[in-house]
Design a protein around this nucleic acid. Sequence first.
DNA 1: AAAAATCTTGACTGGTTGGTCAAGTCTGTT
DNA 2: AACAGACTTGACCAACCAGTCAAGATTTTT
Lengths: 220, 220
Amino acid sequence: MSHGEGAEKTGSRAEMREETERSILDAAERVFAESGFGGATMQAIADACGLPKANLHYYFSSKERLYRRVVERIFTVWLEAADSFETSASPEVALRRYISRKMQLSREHRYGSKVWANEVMHGAPIIQDYLESTLREWTESRVAVIRRWIASGAIQPIEPRWLLYMIWATTQHYADFAHQVETLNHGPLSDAQWDEATETVCQIILRGIGLDPRHGPGTA
Amino acid sequence: MSHGEGAEKTGSRAEMREETERSILDAAERVFAESGFGGATMQAIADACGLPKANLHYYFSSKERLYRRVVERIFTVWLEAADSFETSASPEVALRRYISRKMQLSREHRYGSKVWANEVMHGAPIIQDYLESTLREWTESRVAVIRRWIASGAIQPIEPRWLLYMIWATTQHYADFAHQVETLNHGPLSDAQWDEATETVCQIILRGIGLDPRHGPGTA
DNA sequence: AAAAATCTTGACTGGTTGGTCAAGTCTGTT
DNA sequence: AACAGACTTGACCAACCAGTCAAGATTTTT
């Protein structure tokens, strides 16, 4: 009866540590998302994962370090999703995959998205270097791809950056503004609504840049 | 030499009070946007408007009440912008005006947008009633308008809600994620870039729902 | 000019929070 | 069984912060 968390199979020392850290990070992500960095308290995070507060400081030396780890973990997830924008695929496929993946992320990682939004809104004190290196490189590579699509006449001439921002903003809106969306929807979105929203976003974006948005690659 | 703020023409009692309150609200909006409710301190707000902290409590009895006033003021601005979505206009005109106005708001009221985003992300503890009344009514009325456009064949059949969310998300992104946008842009957006971004968003949305996005109402 | 009302402000306070610590418990090793 | 290292935790502390207050300054009214 060491942990408050439900029965955990005893594993090796390292496994146990990893699992505890993950449980703390999960709780911290939720609390930071709901209260912001300043509003979150270590006690609230401790309560959220059923550990005494002092124990948190055993695994993470300070609140800021814990927050940093939370943000870094989110960036990792973001990077994986970014890969779904395949530079070798056709515009339809690349964008459809990317948008769908980002919508899925918004649904499954609501809290992570909120923490990221908070961090950027507050001037990205922790992740400024990521923005300037990894994110900038990724963005520039996709901008180049979109420019090639334009040059080849595959899509209408639009500034690629504004298109990317539009995709980020729209997909992340379903996580960051989930509360507003759900209030207007009189409850959480159903599976069907998520599918429909995803499909609508894809269609408007694809048609918006001059592609035929009919579902699937065929001419059906 | 009463105020820290630059030379203020002496006005009537009520005028002075109003002006001081506005100056506090402006400072508070900025600080709340940058630090969140929990991270903001009354001292920081006081410093930001050059008043001693005790003076803030003379005008606003508590931090929460001050925050509430900030949020309410933002909602007012939002409502005015909402009016630019004219229900009687054609889809092209209504959407173009609305998107342009929202982009302008993002540029001129960056902090207000961020406070709103923060409030919603944290579950809208203060403005829940606004979401359920005013915002819901406004949304439903515009959804009805868009449905009529669809029924008349003016635009493609898409779920109006997802379109509205797309517009909100995209336009507000330029305020809420201004730091990210500016980092990727190596500096603030120029006038020309704002115009171009606005035009691009209009074009993608209009074409995305099946309209001819050529600038202006003519057939040029 | 004096009294009243409004506004200003430095100093103070009670409560909260991040972080510490020392005394424990548990687990694996010899 | 005994020892060592890893983990747990209640109690504690210093720093900070929202909010108070009382004494004074300024403006308006009489």
